[in-house]
Amino acid sequence: MNKIAVIPVRSGSKRLPKKNYKSFNSKNLAQIARDKCLASGIFDKVIISSDDPVFKELINCNEVEFLQRSDNLANDFATTDMVVDFFFDKFPFCESILWVNSVSPLQSIEDIKKCGLQLNMPDVDCVMAVNTLYQHCCIANEPLNFNPNKSFEKTQDLQPIQRYIYSCMGWKRSTYVDNRSRGFKGLFPGKIGLVEVSVLAGMLVKYEEDFILCSKIDQAMGN
């Protein structure tokens, strides 16, 4: 079980209650992520992890397993690094873990595959899915990639912004576990591989309107 995809599925959700239980064009969000991970053909195992054992029903083949998460790893105070620590502890022999977010239902099989294959590269320790934006951007009211005192640049001439979109992220065990054991507090130790994925992958289901919009796009695309 060298390369694992993990699909975290919380039972609770403040902004859109029970979103992981809702039908998204005949499937729930975890089912969609599961099927795309399996279709990518690059994982030895696909793990669905939740605090609610009802999601154990999503096991549909030998390549899929369910991992029960305790309440303290599924509440509003649980941080991502705590959950990743838990995953590596539960799968001590895996080489890498790719976190595939169920709330990105429009990410494609190819999006997931690109992230997983990048994580396999020898010079990469962790990966983040990104969208590259050619837009005028600011941080704390200060221009980031443009000069407001000069002529207004064409967007294609701007220094692009790489926005992390949360659809996928992943880690190699050797680097992650070693750094965490030595007191590293961050989530992305070592060399980060930024993976350009589709714009649709960046459409996350956080609110009711997101769910409706994404489902309509999915229907329009014939999925």
Results as ranks from 00 to 15, higher is better:
Gly190Ala: 03
Met169Ile: 07
Ile97Asn: 07
Ile47Cys: 14
Thr80Gln: 15
Leu204Phe: 00
Thr175Cys: 13
Cys138Pro: 00
Phe55Ser: 02
Glu95Gln: 15
Asn120Arg: 11
Asn28Met: 09
Gly193Asp: 02
Arg69Tyr: 01
Arg34Ile: 11
Ser26Leu: 02
Leu117Phe: 04
Gln219Asp: 14
Asn25Val: 07
Gln219Pro: 01
Met203Thr: 11
Thr132Phe: 07
Val195Phe: 03
Phe184Ile: 06
Ser108Asp: 13
Ile112Pro: 07
Gly193Ser: 11
Val6Ile: 15
Arg34Gly: 04
Phe88Met: 07
Ser96Val: 08
Leu187Ser: 12
Phe146Arg: 05
Pro148Met: 02
Asn62Pro: 00
Pro8Gln: 11
Leu117Gly: 04
Tyr176Ile: 05
Ser198Trp: 03
Asn101Phe: 01
Ser198Met: 07
Ile212His: 04
Gly202Val: 06
Leu29Asp: 04
Ile32Lys: 02
Asn2Val: 00
Cys61Gly: 10
Ile97Glu: 00
Leu58Asn: 09
Val195Gln: 06
Val6Pro: 03
Ala30Gln: 01
Lys113His: 08
Trp171Ala: 01
Ser23Gln: 11
Asp89Ser: 15
Leu119Tyr: 01
Arg69Phe: 01
Lys56Trp: 00
Glu209Trp: 09
Val197Arg: 02
Ala140Tyr: 06
Gln31Trp: 04
Asp125Lys: 10
Asn60Thr: 14
Gln107Trp: 01
Val177Ser: 08
Ser23Met: 10
Cys138Val: 10
Asp157Ser: 15
Leu194Trp: 10
